[in-house]
Design a protein around this nucleic acid. Structure first.
Length: 420
DNA sequence: TCTGGGGTCCTAGGACCC
DNA sequence: TCTGGGGTCCTAGGACCC
């Protein structure tokens, strides 16, 4: 019989990070299995891709093509990157496409140079959301403490889940992988570690369809040789600053004195860099959170001028306000900080926002406040992007309960003097 | 031929209040 | 006339992430 202290010892903290493999592209491959193994990129702007079925029925009318026939669409019928013009970027590329050096966030025109034969599919967010909900539901059936990190990523707290400690978490990770694959046909990569920071790094070790286990004492051998950029939170700017100090790897970062880091990078950031390099992170897995803001933005097909393209801009502006309003209402939120975002032709970004004294969610009130913001913005340069944001959110119920929500009285919204 | 869209969090200065 | 802190809210910009 083990002593009481042993039996009551708390289980080791085991946190998993799960990352779906090439998620958007993999979902597309479920519909178009004939594309398996080929270079495929997902992306593109608003430029509506000609619907494949419609085109088939027009150009190959020898039979009727329906949604059941997607897997039968001949390869030569898919649009390819070659000759692409427009401002779209790649959202996801299949592993076959990545061989050519194309990847997320790359402009499609640049990708067309690198891999003109790649098949280009338009994004289909409804489809990705559907699979996203499905794989997350499967996970929470097995392990209820899950943190949503976007459509294709989650953290999972394995600590108290039956089997979560076996082989460092590998057994449970395998179970979840299998459950997702059996139900959806999609694969994912999982990293299990003592905390979120290390789990996130671990999930990258063995892609695709891999599992990596990182334990406390793996720090030196597995983490320290990695580039600082692998730490979630160190981006290109911070990485450049670290490099300028001769710090390339996480091990080199860990070798620096904490006080030195605090002097060089600020109290907070320095302390965080020091902790992260030593694999320390006590952030909990957060299962629910309220949104802070909602926004809509759009990049124009060509840069627009505030005066010369006033009518076009005004129409887009109104539409963005309507979309944000619809998003707020559909999700049941109101907000009182209304803001705009402009990106000029030189890529400079300017924001203006204004907090009003009551919570709103209707398009005309948003349009009115956003219009006032626009008046305070410089408008000499041509615009590439326009965005509308509503922040300082409250749920509609909260707002009602505290009588904060004052609906814009009918007819009071006055658009006279508005720029657009 | 550059570079999408939707988010979160942090910083820093100023206003204002105690 | 000069001299304090602290705290909160607001605004603008920027880094970073998916």
């Amino acid at each position: 019989m083990p002593p009481l202290s042993d039996r009551s010892a708390p289980p080791l903290r085991r946190i998993a990070h799960l990352d779906m493999d090439a998620f958007y592209a993999s979902v597309e491959l479920l519909r178009y299995p004939q594309l398996k193994g080929l270079p495929v990129v997902i992306g593109g702007g608003r430029r509506r891709e000609d619907d494949l079925l419609g085109r088939l029925n027009r150009e190959r009318p020898e039979r009727e093509w329906t949604a059941q026939d997607l897997h039968r669409i001949p390869l030569d019928f898919f649009p390819v990157l070659s000759g692409y013009t427009g401002r779209g970027v790649i959202t996801t590329a299949t592993y076959a496409a990545r061989q050519f050096g194309v990847g997320s966030a790359m402009g499609l025109m640049k990708a067309a140079k690198l891999c003109p034969q790649a098949i280009l599919l338009p994004v289909d967010f409804d489809q990705y959301r559907h699979y996203s909900r499905r794989f997350k539901a499967l996970i929470t059936e097995i392990a209820p403490l899950m943190e949503d990190r976007g459509v294709d990523e989650v953290y999972i707290d394995f600590t108290d889940v039956p089997g979560g400690q076996r082989e460092g978490g590998r057994v449970l990770a395998r179970l979840i992988q299998k459950s997702i694959f059996d139900d959806t046909g999609l694969t994912c990569s999982v990293g299990v570690a003592p905390n979120k920071l290390l789990a996130k790094m671990a999930s990258e070790f063995n892609k695709p369809n891999g599992i990596s286990i990182v334990r406390e004492d793996d720090l030196e051998s597995l983490i320290w040789p990695l580039a600082c950029r692998k730490i979630n939170g160190i981006g290109p700017k911070a990485d450049a600053r670290l490099k300028s100090q001769g710090i390339e790897t996480i091990g080199q970062l860990a070798a620096r004195d904490e006080q030195w880091l605090m002097d060089a990078f600020g109290e907070r950031t320095g302390a965080w860099l020091h902790a992260a390099s030593h694999g320390r992170d006590n952030r909990p897995v957060v299962t629910e959170s309220e949104p802070v803001s909602m926004s809509r933005e759009t990049t124009f097909d060509r840069d627009l001028h505030a005066v010369r393209d006033k009518a076009e801009l005004g129409a887009v502006f109104t539409k963005l306000c309507e979309q944000v309003a619809a998003d707020l209402q559909r999700k049941g939120y109101v907000g009182k900080t209304i803001g705009i975002k402009l990106r000029f032709d030189d890529f400079q970004i300017v924001t203006r926002d204004q907090t009003i004294d009551h919570y709103i969610a209707d398009a005309s009130a948003i349009r009115k406040a956003a219009g006032l913001c626009l008046k305070r913005a410089p408008l000499q340069k041509r615009l590439r992007l326009l965005g509308v944001r509503v922040g300082t959110l409250l749920t509609a119920e909260e707002a009602k309960a505290t009588a904060h929500a004052t609906p814009d009285p009918a007819g009071e919204t006055d658009l006279t003097g508005q720029l657009f």
